[in-house]
Measured scan of single mutants.
Amino acid sequence: MDCGICYAYQLDGTIPDQVCDNSQCGQPFHQICLYEWLRGLLTSRQSFNIIFGECPYCSKPITLKMS
């Protein structure tokens, strides 16, 4: 499936590997796309290497662990 942010399947050789945990959403994202999206939200917060925010599609909580 394509990334829900950039709408591409491959981005710099990677495929969407982050998925919204909401079973009714399940939208996939590239890690870098989701990172940039969450960084741009005023409501997002970060604790060590984990960013907490809202899914761009369903607005439910989503987390991103940076590797």
Results as ranks from 00 to 15, higher is better:
Pro28Lys: 13
Trp37Ala: 11
Ser59Cys: 15
Ser23Pro: 10
Ser59Arg: 15
Thr14Gly: 06
Tyr7Ala: 12
Asp21Lys: 12
Glu54Lys: 10
Ile50Arg: 14
Gln10Val: 12
Ser44Ala: 09
Lys65Met: 03
Asp2Tyr: 10
Thr14Leu: 09
Ser47Gly: 14
Asp2Lys: 13
Leu64Asp: 11
Gln27Cys: 03
Thr63Cys: 15
Pro28Trp: 12
Ala8Leu: 09
Gln31Trp: 07
Ile32Val: 08
Gln46Glu: 14
Cys6Glu: 01
Leu11Tyr: 10
Asp2Ile: 08
Cys20Ala: 01
Gly26Asn: 06
Asp21Arg: 07
Lys65Gly: 11
Ile62Leu: 09
Gln46Gly: 07
Ser44Trp: 06
Thr63Trp: 11
Asp21Gln: 07
Thr63Met: 06
Cys6Asp: 02
Leu11Arg: 12
Thr14Ala: 13
Lys65Trp: 06
Pro61Ser: 04
Gln24Ile: 05
Arg39Gly: 06
Cys58Lys: 00
Phe29Glu: 03
Asp2Ala: 10
Gln10Leu: 13
Ser67Leu: 06
Gln27Ser: 05
Gly4Asp: 04
Gly13Asp: 04
Gln31Leu: 11
Ile15Thr: 10
Tyr9Glu: 03
Lys65Pro: 13
Asp17Arg: 01
Ile62Ser: 00
Asn22Pro: 02
Cys55Gly: 02
Arg39Asn: 15
Leu42Cys: 13
Val19Glu: 05
Ile62Val: 06
Gly13Gln: 07
Ser47Thr: 11
Val19Lys: 12
Ser59Asp: 04
Ile32Ala: 12
Cys3Thr: 00
Ala8Met: 13
Cys20Trp: 01
Leu38Asn: 15
Gln27Ile: 11
Cys58Ser: 01
Gln31Gly: 05
Ser23Thr: 07
Ile50Phe: 05
Leu34Val: 08
Ile5Gly: 03
Cys6Arg: 01
Ile50Tyr: 13
Ile50Ser: 14
Leu34Lys: 00
Val19Asp: 02
Gln24Phe: 09
Thr14Glu: 14
Leu11Thr: 03
Pro56Ser: 00
Glu36Gln: 08
Cys20Ser: 00
Thr14Phe: 06
Pro16Leu: 00
Arg45Ala: 14
Asp2Trp: 03
Gln18Arg: 04
Ile62Lys: 00
Arg39Ala: 09
Arg39Val: 04
Cys3Ser: 01
Gln31Arg: 10
Val19Gly: 04
Tyr7Ser: 11
Cys55Pro: 01
Cys25Lys: 04
Leu11Trp: 02
Ser47Arg: 10
Ser59Gln: 12
Tyr7Pro: 00
Gln10Ile: 12
Phe29Thr: 02
Pro16Lys: 02
Leu42Glu: 14
Thr63Arg: 10
Phe48Lys: 06
Ser47Lys: 07
Gly26Trp: 02
Ile50Gln: 13
Ser44Leu: 10
Cys33Arg: 00
Asp17Ser: 10
Gly13Lys: 03
Cys58Glu: 00
Gln24Pro: 14
Asp2Gln: 08
Gln10Pro: 08
Pro56Leu: 02
Gln24Arg: 08
Lys65Thr: 11
Gly26Arg: 11
Lys65Ser: 14
Gln46Cys: 08
Glu36Gly: 08
Ser23Ala: 14
Leu38Ser: 03
Gln27Leu: 06
Cys33Gly: 00
Pro16Arg: 01
Cys3Val: 02
Ser47Phe: 15
Val19Tyr: 15
Gln18Gly: 02
Tyr57Ile: 11
Ile32Phe: 13
Tyr9Gln: 09
Ile62Cys: 09
Cys6Lys: 00
Pro28Glu: 07
Cys3Pro: 02
Asp12Ala: 08
Thr14Ser: 09
Cys3Glu: 00
Ser44Gly: 08
Asp12Trp: 03
Ser23Lys: 08
Leu41Glu: 13
Ser23Trp: 10
Pro16Thr: 03
Ala8Arg: 13
Ala8Glu: 14
Thr63Ala: 09
Leu64Thr: 14
Asp2Asn: 12
Lys65Gln: 02
Gly26Val: 05
Leu42Ala: 12
Ile32Asp: 05
Tyr35Val: 09
Leu42Asn: 11
Cys20Gly: 01
Tyr9Cys: 02
Pro56Val: 04
Pro56Asn: 02
Tyr35Ser: 10
Glu36Thr: 09
Leu38Cys: 04
Gly53Gln: 02
Ser23Asn: 12
Asp21Trp: 13
Gln24Lys: 15
Cys55Trp: 02
Gly40Gln: 15
Asp12Thr: 04
Ser44Met: 11
Phe29Ser: 03
His30Pro: 00
Gly26Thr: 09
Ile50Gly: 12
Gln31Val: 14
Leu11Lys: 10
Leu34Arg: 00
Leu38Ala: 02
Ala8Lys: 13
Pro61Phe: 05
Cys58Asp: 01
Ile50Cys: 10
Thr43Ala: 09
Gly53His: 01
Gly26Tyr: 09
Tyr7Ile: 02
Leu64Val: 13
Asp2Cys: 09
